[in-house]
Design a protein around this nucleic acid. Structure first.
Length: 588
RNA sequence: GUCCCCGUAGCUCAGCCGGAUAGAGCAUCAGAUUCCUAAUCUGAGGGCCGCAGGUUCGAAUCCUGCCGGGGACGCCA
């Protein structure tokens, strides 16, 4: 089922062609002036020069052709030559009825499904998940839901940072503190202990201390680098210790991701491609794609036309260790072999843009086979209200877990204030608070264009009124409640009638935009487009709800039509919230 | 220094492959509940779209320069 704006574009483009004008100028979009029309096309202005006629005359020519269209109630020309279109109420109602009858609400599945891999540039082992991980997680999650819904084959990979210098740093720090452990005894015959020598809290404390110490002392840095190289070359004790770190960290991350409602198909990490690195490096060196420079093995990726110098990608450091550019390349090799993807999206902080440019260029230069399009989906950093990188009041980073607890507590408090869920069982109330808190946090993040840096303002995150996640949940829940009450009175949704009230017409027009919103969000890889639209739709319903009292309607047919409108809106909201990764409670 | 992102209402942000009167939420002020959930709805005020040029019939949108914020720039991730 084609969406409304595409349908109108086809019609208007045909009219442009009939008028002897380029069809592409007949693109129809939502009106900027709802007082003059529902849709508009500005092509006559651009066509004026080609046609050597005044824009108004061009517009009149096109309007004349359109005039007989039975779907259009009005075709008018305004200003210098804008063509404004208004649909007949009958056609609008019929279109929304089609939408309502469609499982996918008019969102067509793609004709050529692609294999899409989403790389979340995952958290590093031994570092607790903090608010900085929020963006990649929820933007990436929304994108995976979106692409999947469009019918693509999506494989998401958390892609842990578990194989670089920080791992060596931790091992070196442990060697310093606990040299007695068997992991550091080169002659140890095994087996190594099954239990980790450190717990999660120890591990999380270890990293910042080790990093600070290394920062201050070059000798410690050297030791950490040596430990990294030894780990990567397979020293058994180091591998055993590293495995403990990994297991502990992964368990903690899974807990945090679960709490957030974010799931991955693969929980892989850099270390998983370790076996692929040596052969890949060898091949690149043999084919002279990689070369020695200052002791390191590098791939030169500078290209003519670069505005800034693009430094070579370091495949292998002078000390033999590898960095994440190498593991990222090997990961591409791995993915091409396993999935032969058409598209790989890296949902990673915009600051790593140059890194990805290097990796993508190296890949194109022959580091990998396969045809995958590689795309960095960058996003801006999260700052505090002072515009500087976000810190807690105490000056530290805020753990993801703590943020979610705060949001839940706040939601619980607000439930009390608003008098909602007062008589629900305590357990359900707690679950509602949890869902509301997460919705607030996710929507507050997702509604921003991902490239912008944005201000992480706790107070604002904890507000549940206006353009927020909870507003959307509330709208959906209210519709459910309405439909439940209707069903209890044996009232069912029925045929959608042509609208009478303006709010009714507006809601129909808004519903018809769903496919466009989804398409734009996917094309721009921009969940905020979904947020924008979801808010418009929820607000459209709230207005309708305030103006049209469904259950007390006199006319049974009108009432059934309204119920169908409500039901369809609910389905659309549910779909949108699902694409945003926001769950809706049954009631609240 | 070079390059990238950002600069729009008091605050937080949409709008940016040119188009009519630049939108939303919050905050402020004024209203709405004998009836479907007021976490709602209605209305008002609030703008040299960072600055200056340029292109164009037309610029928040495209180009150039400058200013301000953030970031990246070879052996961290």
């Amino acid at each position: 089922m084609p969406c409304l704006s595409a349908l109108l574009s086809d019609t208007v483009q045909a009219a442009f062609t009939a008028a002897g004008l380029p069809a592409e100028l007949g693109q129809v979009k939502l009106s900027d002036r709802p007082d003059l029309g529902q849709y508009q096309t500005n092509g006559a202005l651009a066509a004026a020069k080609l046609a050597r006629k005044p824009p108004r005359a061009v517009a009149e020519g096109v309007a004349e052709i359109l005039d007989g269209d039975p779907r259009l109630a009005g075709v008018s020309i305004a200003g210098p030559g804008f063509i404004n279109l208004t649909l007949t109420d009958a056609f609008l109602a019929a279109h929304v009825a089609d939408l309502a009858a469609d499982d996918r609400l008019g969102v067509e599945a793609v004709r050529d499904p692609q294999t899409v891999i989403l790389d979340f540039g995952g958290p590093n082992v031994a570092k607790p998940m903090h608010v900085g991980h929020l963006r990649a997680s929820i933007i990436g999650d929304s994108l995976q839901r979106l692409f999947r819904h469009l019918g693509h084959r999506v494989i998401s990979d958390v892609h842990l940072g578990d194989w670089g210098y920080p791992m060596g740093l931790l091992i070196a720090e442990m060697a310093r503190r606990r040299p007695d452990l068997p992991y550091f005894d080169a002659g140890f015959q095994g087996p190594y202990p099954a239990d980790s020598p450190v717990g999660l809290e120890d591990l999380e404390a270890l990293y910042p201390e080790a990093a600070a110490a290394a920062q201050a002392e070059p000798e410690r840095r050297r030791q950490a680098s040596a430990a990294t190289a030894a780990l990567q070359s397979g020293r058994p004790g180091y591998r055993a210790l590293w495995q403990h770190f990994l297991d502990i960290s992964v368990a903690a991350m899974k807990r945090d991701f679960d709490a957030l409602g974010v799931h991955f198909d693969l929980f892989k990490g850099e270390a998983d491609v370790d076996p692929l690195i040596a052969p890949m490096v060898e091949r690149l060196a043999d084919h002279a794609i990689a070369e020695r420079d200052e002791g390191a093995l590098v791939i030169r990726v500078a290209e003519d036309g670069d505005k800034a110098e693009v430094p070579p990608l370091i495949l292998e450091k002078a000390d033999g260790g590898v960095m994440y550019a190498t593991t990222d390349l090997a990961t591409i090799v791995d993915r091409v072999t396993a999935f032969d993807p058409d598209l790989v999206l890296y949902v990673v902080d915009q600051r790593q843009h140059l890194h990805f440019e290097q990796v993508f260029r190296a890949a194109r230069r022959g580091a990998i086979s396969g045809h995958a399009r590689l795309e960095h989906i960058g996003f801006g950093t999260m700052n505090g209200t002072d515009g500087k990188p976000f810190k807690t009041r105490a000056g530290g980073v805020m753990k993801l877990q703590d943020l979610l607890s705060m949001a839940t507590e706040e939601a619980e408090a607000r439930l009390g204030e608003a008098g909602l869920a007062a008589d629900y069982p305590a357990e359900e109330r707690a679950e509602i608070a949890r869902l509301v808190g997460i919705a607030a946090v996710k929507f507050a993040d997702l509604q921003n264009w991902r490239m912008s840096n944005y201000i992480f303002d706790l107070d604002r995150f904890m507000r549940f009124e206006g353009r927020t996640g909870p507003y959307l949940q509330y709208a959906a829940v209210r519709i459910r409640s309405l439909l439940r009450k209707a069903a209890a009175q044996d009232l069912r949704p029925g045929a959608i009638l042509p609208p009478e009230a303006p709010v009714e017409r507006d809601l129909m027009l808004t519903l018809a935009r769903l496919p466009d919103a989804v398409a734009v969000a996917a094309a721009k890889r921009a969940p905020h487009e979904l947020c924008d639209y979801a808010y418009d739709l929820a607000q459209g319903f709230s207005r309708f709800y305030a103006a049209c009292h469904v259950l007390s309607a006199d006319d049974a047919d009108r009432q059934a039509s309204w119920l169908m409108l409500a039901h369809t809106t609910e389905r659309a909201l549910d779909r949108l919230l699902d694409l945003l990764g926001i769950a809706v409670p049954e009631r609240m």
